[in-house]
Each structure stands twice: as structure tokens, then as C-alpha cells.
């Protein structure tokens, strides 16, 4: 069986639910108490992407910034994939989405990236449908760290891209 380690990083504003997404994916737990992440927390989860291939995801949970350019360059060294998370209920977290994604794709052209709108449990499907244009970039996934909706799908989809 093939086994590889890949470093992925979650980026985005503070309070968008990056840590909660990781906890839901790694530990299947969720708490609505907000605890600020400072610096970096690193967690691991093994993901079976095919019957004969497992991937060990080293997930870097980064402190949230309101400007992606403020992210310390050293954190991004050796990164295999990015997940950019925003909060679908707070416009401040997706006002610069288009620019941030352009910046990431320019700086890390060959690094897979997933754009994720989190906290969909707080809005209706109609809201998402009617407001999809306001995000500026079409998200790859709409997730809920609270209910677990699409969380595994999102991490696994990225994992599969990492071994392509």
C-alpha cells in the first residue's frame, strides 16, 4: 500500500471556522465556543483515497488574518495544498476573496486549492443560491463544521488532488 505525507494549510479570516473544520474532520467534534487560534496548530489525519493508497494529511491550522499577505511566508514553505475558508454569513470574510485567490494562484500556481464557504447551517439554500455572485469566486464547497456537511468530502477531494 502506498503511503505519503502531505502538508496542507487552511487560510482565511479569523472566526470563519478553520479550526472547527479541522476538528470536525480529524476528531468528529464541534464546539460553538470560539477560541482564537494564534500561530499554528498542526494535526494529522490519514485518509484512504483508494483501496491501495493512503495519504497522511498534515494539516496546518493557521491564525486567521484579514489580509492574506500578512501570513508569514515561512508557514507556507513546503505546502502541498491550500484550503481558503470564508464565512458565508460575514461579508468582511469574503470581500477580498477574489483578490486573495488571485494572489494565491499567482504565488503558488501549481499548488491545489479549495475555496470553501463555511457556516452554511446558519443560512438557507435559497440565500446561497441568490447570493452566490457576491462571493466573487465560486466556492468549491459549502460546508458546515457544525453539522459536518461536506467537510469530509472537501478534505478528501483535496487529498485526491495532492496525489495526482
Amino acid at each position: 500500500m502506498k503511503k505519503a505525507s502531505k502538508k496542507i494549510i487552511l487560510l482565511g479570516h479569523f472566526g470563519v471556522g478553520k479550526s472547527s473544520l479541522i476538528r470536525q474532520f480529524v476528531e468528529n467534534t464541534f464546539t460553538s465556543d470560539y477560541k482564537v487560534t494564534i500561530g499554528v496548530h498542526i494535526l494529522k489525519k490519514e485518509v484512504e483515497i483508494s483501496p491501495d493508497e493512503t495519504i497522511s494529511l498534515i494539516i496546518w491550522d493557521l491564525e486567521g488574518y484579514d489580509d492574506i499577505k500578512k501570513t508569514r511566508a515561512s508557514y507556507l514553505l513546503g505546502t502541498h495544498g491550500f484550503i481558503y475558508v470564508f464565512d458565508v454569513t460575514r461579508p468582511a470574510t469574503f470581500e477580498n476573496l477574489e483578490n486573495d485567490i488571485t494572489y494565491l494562484t499567482n504565488q503558488y500556481a501549481n499548488t491545489p486549492l479549495k475555496v470553501v464557504g463555511n457556516k452554511v447551517d446558519l443560512v438557507t439554500k435559497t440565500y446561497l443560491k441568490e447570493n452566490k455572485d457576491m462571493f466573487g469566486v465560486a466556492p468549491d464547497f459549502f460546508t458546515s463544521a457544525k453539522t459536518g456537511d461536506k467537510v469530509d468530502d472537501m478534505f478528501i477531494a483535496l487529498a485526491k488532488e495532492l496525489v495526482k
Binding site: 500561530g39 491564525e63 515561512s74 513546503g78
Partner: peptide, 21 residues
């Protein structure tokens, strides 16, 4: 693990990381 690519480099590097848990 994320730094394994730098374990065997034969050159001067000084990489600083802050606030690592």
C-alpha cells in the same frame, strides 16, 4: 514533517517560525 525537504540541503539557511504549538 513539513520541513523534511530541508534536512539534507548543503547550504546556508536560517528559517524562523513563530508561535508554533
Amino acid at each position: 514533517k513539513g520541513l523534511s525537504a530541508y534536512f539534507d540541503v548543503d547550504e546556508e539557511n536560517d528559517i524562523k517560525f513563530t508561535c508554533i504549538h
